[in-house]
Amino acid sequence: MSKQKAPSERQNSYVTADGRTIGPAVMEMKNITLRFGGVIAIQGISFDIHEGEIRAIIGPNGAGKSSMLNVINGFYHPQEGKIIYKGEVRRPLKPFEIAHQGIARTFQNIALFKGMTTLDNIMTGRLTHMNTGMLSQALWWGKAQREETENRAFAERIIDFLEIQSIRKVPVGRLPYGLQKRVELGRALAAEPSLLLLDEPMAGMNVEEKEDMSRFILDVNEEFGTTIALIEHDMSVVMDLADRVVVMDYGKKIGDGTPDEVRKNQAVIDAYLGVSHD
């Protein structure tokens, strides 16, 4: 990636209001259009996500935000447009291949593995980093054991970070909603993603849980330097967390910029206050 840092791309780096330096674009979406049969979910949207920033995607219900995340992690394939990831145009890949490229995500409706414990769920996040052969695993000798122990140590760091030591060996199906959301974040973090996608990480939480989750998101961004793209409905949270915001409505982009810029954008205000579309 370093050798492809053209001067023009360097100029993309910027400094945030609180003084952090944001790197060049890690992912660029160019003119993405996604259709389901006759329904247009996303219409010609372009935006970019820079290294180290927290990028929010907001918009009313049905604006196409979740579809956008699904395009980024390869669950949907857009009919038109280009996706440039780490400076290279990405060909259509299967979701698991994209996971191996370092994109991890959480889901709007929790998608944990209900039959497994918290620890096992977080260990599944390490799967992209584990590659012992079947034979070694069958005998549990040599590399299999070593790899398991190393990755367990990493998973334990995530568990410490998210303060969920006490539920390490509890099946996740038994956990309350807020904790499940946290375990899901842990599973995504365990993959050491270079781009982390969060789909409504605070949906259905009370104020206290939201505060906890916001703190974790900021800490992840600061301590691990992880690039984050998130969808969220709670405007106050978005405006506090995000460095830049994309606003979508009816599958189109209607605003893009820092929280302050977006807040003043007339099209955004209209969309949220409900001016009729002609």
Binding site: N73, F75, K94, P95, F96, A99, H100, A104, R105, F107, A111, L112, F113, T124, G125, L127, T128, R187, A188, A191
Partner: peptide
């Protein structure tokens, strides 16, 4: 589906 998205082939 979730398994595939976290990187299971």
């Amino acid at each position: 589906i979730a398994a595939e998205i976290i990187g299971v082939n």
